[in-house]
Design a protein around this nucleic acid. Structure first.
Lengths: 234, 234, 234, 234
DNA sequence: AATGAATGAGTATTCATTCAT
DNA sequence: GATGAATGAATACTCATTCAT
């Protein structure tokens, strides 16, 4: 296997489980090892595929590119993924799952941090989840739309969920007198649009543009400043 | 030729006029007639292609689909467009051009309308330019990203231009004390993100979602309300 | 196009129709010519495919073999036949159709030839229909069974039809006192088995076996002698 | 291992005997046990393969189908059979061998049963040999022809042998004045065709056709009646 | 002996584009 | 201009077989 991009930090997160008490695990250390190797290869293929998709785009990426880069035989690819489409879905699920996990509700407990701080952190977390895998984010943002019905549905669901979360948050804020919201649904879409644009900014850009890219913190700051205070002088 | 969707308002304007008396156009009536017919066919092909792209997506759309729907021979297609890619570019240019044209600077003349009115109208015009061709907008938004380097460049330029326009406007507003702008560039991206999202909202959506779609005016209203006033109570 | 086997005598039989009065045919001599060329190519491909199937067997025959032998581009093949399977079906239909057409009922008219003569001629005609295209017969007999469900059905129908014809014939003969038939259905199968074996004999065989192959007449003779008189002395 | 069809009567005869006391077989009890187990597995694989071939046909049958059904690892298959082709050959040899064994010459001894009885029994034995393994017979009849050169040769030899046997029998019969034979060779082929057709009848057929299938005795009866007496009234 | 992960040769089919008529 | 038959490059996927453990 060659060494591909491997931008994914959580590549190994799933593996380190067998460390504690493992009396019954002795049973099939063999099996578990095989499992580990299998998982590694899967990750390798995912990483390589991501790289290839990023370079050539989904449609121009050939299975041959992936297996060549991974140093794996043709059939091996299909041992791990059903199809070219399937590996894209795996990548997509990966990103969407991670972003979803980064979204948490605002806690209203007495010793909870101030609401505005919570919100800022929430936004930062979401941005960070995307930016942690810029290639993946770029690939998903660029290639996923219109790929196939299932992908479309996944994306629609994903955005609908984010939208729901935002709309609920806005409504809560309004109820508490913290926010002034005319049309919660539309406003939530507006916020989502802002966030999406910032993600793109954080992740896209040619070489030289990348230099003047905002930091995650700056981007979150901008989102909140813009969303909360608006552009009109106060 | 069959009769396709033809969502484009200017689509039919040139059409079926040349039948009557054309004596005085003797100069080059022949040539001009041919020219007109040619233009008509071109439009027809564009309309049909848009329809096909909207139905099946760019990648799944076959030239055969287009010529079948247009009732035109295979070779004829290539008399009007260099390639499948070229007709997409034509469609893309069409939309981007129209939107670009809808963007006008804010006039500072003494008898010009109030600035906020001008801005509102500007935003509405942009939204309207997209919404005038919802299929086309949807196709461009869904299929254009990542299609090929040239398309990418066109889109990047287009958005960069919109961004520039917004950034300048914000800067002007700030200079005049009309706007409170911390980071003009970022803020402009934020506004652009909001607009893009609203366009998508106006143009996307399943059948039942379409019912609760905002009107252009409401969308523009939401954009301005959100952008100007922000969500925090004033 | 190269020159393949072309064992098929009726290759041109479908074409010679436009000879008589053709006032209205003037309309589209172009179209009819195109039609003719098309039909020729189709035949050419069928002939070549038969040759290839005969050489390598259906499963080992590659489309590449066929188009190489036909001197035709890959796509051209699919202009004429939907798939490799489809061209086999066309071949199969060809043979079965021809054999079916060779089967005629026995005429009972007063000035009709004697029944036994009619039967002999009928059997000879069937044998001749097979033997006229020995390669095709061999291919169908060798490759068709178990190829796919549809082929199986066609063959089953074909044999069922032959069986029906024989069974009816036997029954008629029995009614007229010309035949002694214990179990008409079984007897018909027995006759069919005899015929099939003879067809195989006429069509199969290695080079040197081919020398001692019976003639069609001898084979028909044998079939009738055996079927009618049996092996026991009379 | 799973439990497959196992239509073969001798399939289980060798099985599960070796569990009890095997002290006195100390010589090579180990080896013989291993041998027995091996043989058992081989049979199991043959049975399963036959089942799979019967269901999907040789070409559509995958090794995966066989090992899945047999509950055996991939490599294990190749410990018992060289290839997919090899297991088919084993099956084929099985059937042909059994049928060959069922063919015995007519005894002319003084206290031998009457010749006609012997013949009838011979035919019945052959039919029974086929019908004892209807699936296998069907598979061999459907899939073997045209599979590969070696299979073809085996079948040709097999039929040639049957033909020889029949031809000799006819000749003998003729010499003894028991039979009236014009062309012994051809007549033998005719009889063989009749037999083959009856075997097919006995073994083939859809569910409802199976009901009206003749018994072996009836089929043998039909063969002899038809072959000996012919269809013409005596 | 048994396992099953890995291999890689093999191929039917699609479809954008061309060009002779 | 218009036609549509012909082209052929391009590629995902299957599955029998191998071999290290």
């Amino acid at each position: 296997m060659s060494t591909p991009t491997s931008e994914r930090p959580e590549s190994g997160t799933v593996v380190h489980l067998t460390s504690g008490a493992n009396k019954d695990v002795a049973r099939d250390g063999r099996a578990s090892r095989a499992e580990k190797i299998r998982e590694q290869r899967r990750r390798e293929l995912l990483d390589v595929a991501l790289h290839v998709f990023a370079q050539r785009g989904y449609h121009h990426a050939r299975i041959a590119d992936i297996i060549d880069a991974a140093g794996v035989a043709r059939g091996t690819f299909y041992l791990y993924f059903e199809s070219k489409n399937a590996i894209f879905h795996a990548l997509l699920d990966d990103l969407l799952g991670r972003v979803r996990a980064s979204v948490v509700g605002v806690s209203m407990g007495t010793n909870a941090p101030p609401v505005n701080v919570q919100i800022r952190e929430s936004v930062e977390r979401v941005l960070a989840a995307f930016v942690a895998s810029p290639d993946l984010t770029r690939v998903v943002l660029r290639e996923a739309v219109g790929l196939d019905a299932e992908v479309d549905k996944k994306l629609a669901d994903f955005y609908a969920r984010l939208h729901r979360w935002l709309a609920d948050a806005l409504e809560n804020g309004a109820r508490l007198g913290l926010l002034r919201v005319a049309n919660g649904e539309l406003a939530a879409w507006a916020v989502l649009g802002t966030i999406k644009q910032m993600v793109q900014l954080l992740v896209d850009g040619t070489e030289d543009e990348r230099a003047q890219r905002p930091t995650i913190t700056a981007a979150a700051e901008a989102i909140l400043d813009y969303s909360m205070l608006g552009l009109a002088p106060r």
